[in-house]
């Protein structure tokens, strides 16, 4: 396959970026999108220029590091896949492909296609945990039964890989799907109940502080989410936040 790649190049957070055009030939349909990017970089390095910087690590769709906005969509045209799982067979010979970084105030560009997603970490640090010490001397794991359906829902929420595709796809750069997935995971489990209210309040507060936009329920996040995190999580967070706000003492 022969492709024309339009790639966003930006030297640093303060620099102005632009789209660069590269021609790439000899692409095989069996290659993953990132392998195609490797090939592009190989070509660029051999030509004595600076390769495209992009985040990637596990290349099997679970670490959440890869983050490309391909042809107008987070992680490209596939559904339920990350950029690394997207294969070139999803494209045609002669295609022009636009590749951009996640764009959000809260995700500043580091270089080219690499962005800083530490805002997500800070949201988790604000309360995305159960306060239990790592003594190993908690009660037996089977002492608290959890109804299977609830456990399965908690798991589904917990499968979020923190890639940020939700923010990237949302026209408002809102992080509601990410935040609500963690809130939901713990809200659905008995272990999460003691901190349920304070958790949602602290996480939402941090989310707002980071400069993410507001949710307008377009649902784009859930469509583009590589792990299929459901919108019901956002509703659950809306509900929990309201009840926490009404009930809280301060």
């Amino acid at each position: 396959m022969n492709l024309t790649l339009k790639v966003w190049r930006q030297d640093g957070p303060e620099a102005t970026g632009h789209m660069d055009t590269h021609a790439l030939g000899g692409v095989s349909p069996d290659m993953s999108f990132l392998e195609m990017m490797d090939m592009l970089n190989d070509q660029i390095i051999r030509a004595g220029e600076e390769p495209v910087a992009f985040d990637h690590d596990c290349r099997e769709g679970i670490c959440g590091m890869c983050s490309m906005f391909i042809n107008g969509e987070a992680h490209g045209p596939g559904r339920g896949v990350t950029t690394c799982q997207l294969h070139m067979r999803s494209f045609n010979d002669g295609d022009t492909i636009a590749i951009e970084p996640w764009r959000a105030q809260a995700f500043p560009v580091i270089k080219d296609l690499t962005v800083d997603r530490s805002a997500f970490d800070r949201v988790i640090q604000a309360g995305g945990y159960i306060s239990v010490n790592t003594s190993g001397n908690t009660i037996d794991a089977n002492a608290i039964p959890v109804p299977k359906e609830q456990a399965d829902d908690a798991f589904s929420a917990a499968t979020c890989i923190g890639c940020g595709a939700c923010v990237a796809s949302c026209k408002n750069a809102s992080a509601m799907l990410f935040v609500s997935a963690k809130v939901s995971q713990f809200a659905l489990l008995p272990q999460g109940q003691p901190e349920r209210e304070s958790r949602v309040q602290r996480m939402v507060e941090q989310m707002d502080k980071e400069g993410f936009g507001n949710c307008t329920n377009t649902g784009a996040c859930a469509v583009e989410c590589p792990k299929g995190i459901d919108l019901s999580n956002i509703a659950r967070m809306n509900r929990d936040f309201m009840s926490a706000t009404v009930k809280s003492k301060k």
Binding site: Y129, I130, V132, T134, S135, G136, N137, T138, I139, D140, A141, I144, A151, A154, F155, A158, Q185, F186, L189, Q191, G192
Partner: peptide, 9 residues
């Protein structure tokens, strides 16, 4: 035990 207490599903 530890992981379940932490909310690992």
């Amino acid at each position: 035990d530890q992981c379940v207490a932490q909310g690992v599903p």
